[in-house]
Design a protein around this nucleic acid. Sequence first.
DNA 1: AACATTTGACCGTC
DNA 2: GACGGTCAAATGTT
Length: 340
Amino acid sequence: MEQEALLNELKEGRAVTNLLMKHLHLPSSHQTRLVLIEKILGSYENALSILNCNGLVVETKPSLSTMESLPSIDHSSPDKRDVFKKRKTSSGWTEQLRVCSGTSLDNPVDDGFCWRKYGQKAILGSNFPRNVKPEYIVGYYRCTHRHSQGCLAIKQVQKSNDDPTIFEVKYKGRHTCNQTSHFAATYVSVSTESENEGNYSRKRQHQLEVKQKQAQQAFSSFGSGLKVKTEDLDNREDIFPSFPFPVESEQVKNGSFVEALMENDIMGNLSPAFISPATSESNYFSMSPCHMGSFESDLTDIISAPTSVTNSPIGDLDISSLDKLEFDPSFAFDNPEFFY
DNA sequence: AACATTTGACCGTC
DNA sequence: GACGGTCAAATGTT
């Protein structure tokens, strides 16, 4: 039974996490903790394998490299077409967001920022034979304020042909514009209209309200669907200020998540927006029972979130059983120590 | 009119 | 040459 195996893996992960939590309060060695973390990750890997066998979309992600290889966009000579044609491959993507979406297929994740689409491409998936049809349609977006404010944030929205309800959103760069997305202005307090939202603000506000409700529904049913993986990112402060996911979840509202973070002094390592992983060690946290991408990507962040439960078939997975795990007070997801 | 999206072409990398 | 990423003209929307 895959479900049973899955549950076992998750339970094991929880147990090891709890163990790790204890070790954090003990003078145990750093290596001991690393071993525990590896075990946790192993459990997740196994769980993912099971999910993959179940036909769930939890594909393995290719490795992403660091931002240090990021090509710098030359804005000093914007008119020259040959200025920036550097192939980026997968390098430098700072965040990835996988979304089971029952919401708009065109904009599965309204992250509160204003994006402008500048291209679309059918691309092959990783591990995809060359002679097979493209697996993804990728939309390329950049910040609307790129020219006006020189904001370099860009994102890709990748839609799987296999399952159009699954999106993968990659973020790159930080928002240097004055968009005060960051959920404080958009999701958390939709009544607080950003002065910088300009003409979009009113319309967007309504959209955000709707999506906020959707997100809340998603969270309330799924538990939280937030997954972040950070590994050895020197520039993580560049990442999370633009943290794209609506943090407005029930858990967040109830304070359980944030408070847990705060209580455990994790927030000290977080950026003002959400997270600014400060250690050079591998950082990882995951709150998604169903959208865990692979954990093998290096030097990348992966954020995964269901935006709607109304249309998020997760194969045959019995979510209720996961809910028990999710909302088990002792479950490590509630404990930021899990995030290492 | 201003802005956003679409889409084919182009370019750099592999 | 294939592929991924970007450009920019054409088109659509507000």
